[in-house]
Computed example of a mutant assay.
Amino acid sequence: MLRPAEDTREIPELNAAELGAIAHLYRGEIYRSTIWRTRLDNTTNWSIVTLGIALSSTFSSREASALPLILIGMLLAVFLGLEARRYRYFNVWRARARFLETHWYVPILNGKSAKDDAGWRNILAEDYLHPRHHISFVRAAGRRIRRTYIWIIVIQTSAYIGKLAIHPQMAAHLDELIERAEIGPIPGWVVICCGLAYNLCWVVLAVTTYWLDRRAHGTRPSAGGMG
């Protein structure tokens, strides 16, 4: 979250050349946010493709192992880490572009002058002078889980449980399903407990960061922050 600059001196009106420069600045911020948005989509595509490969391998035959669906979980964690890092950069450009839209273009469009013209310009200037990420890595990861990865993880978990339940034939009871979860010397109940902990960690991260986002946005002044 950005804070208003301490210097509250009145800022003079922008001339035509300066207005043109800000228009080009806005175009540059939109371009950079679009580039990083594409990078986010690439990481999500990698996750979907690798999950599809794991599903194809696991359900290719009755004798195929469910291990690929477990390994893909670790790969999803890696992709999520990459995507959270990219989201932090994307959020910088997105926030700046949105800030210009709400504090500069909106007054132009509705014909009402901004009440805090000096305030928002100071905030934006401070962000350019001392650039930094607007959200933490953990909050970025939580956002990506809630918006994208939760569905990928649900499909992965459902497929894993389905594999244990139907291959090589329908499981007659819970003990049989747990027995099928064995990986070499690792007992099935240990594997299932690890899977439950894995999914619980994502749920806790998603819920916790949602609460942090709500708290940050709820206390942020309408014209006093980005991100």
Rank of each mutant, 00 (worst) to 15 (best):
R220W: 04
L67G: 00
I48H: 08
P4E: 12
A181P: 05
E18M: 07
W46L: 14
E18Y: 06
G142E: 00
E101F: 08
M74G: 15
R96W: 06
L19R: 07
R3T: 15
L14M: 15
T34N: 14
V207P: 02
A95D: 08
I192V: 11
R37H: 15
D41G: 13
I178A: 11
L200Y: 03
S222I: 09
F90V: 02
G162Y: 03
L14D: 10
Y89L: 10
A223Y: 11
I135Q: 10
R146E: 01
Y149H: 11
A17I: 05
T219V: 11
A66G: 10
R214K: 12
E101C: 09
N45K: 01
E29F: 05
D213I: 02
V92E: 11
V190G: 05
M74S: 13
I70F: 12
P187N: 14
W189N: 14
D127T: 10
I123S: 03
L80T: 00
H133A: 11
I108K: 11
N42V: 02
E29T: 02
L205N: 03
F137V: 10
G28T: 08
I178D: 06
M1L: 13
G111R: 14
L71V: 12
R139M: 09
V207Q: 03
A95S: 15
E83A: 03
H217Q: 13
A77G: 09
R215A: 07
R143F: 03
R143I: 01
N110H: 13
M226V: 07
S47G: 03
T50Q: 09
A84D: 01
V138F: 12
R215W: 05
Y210N: 07
G227L: 07
A197G: 08
L2C: 06
A17V: 01
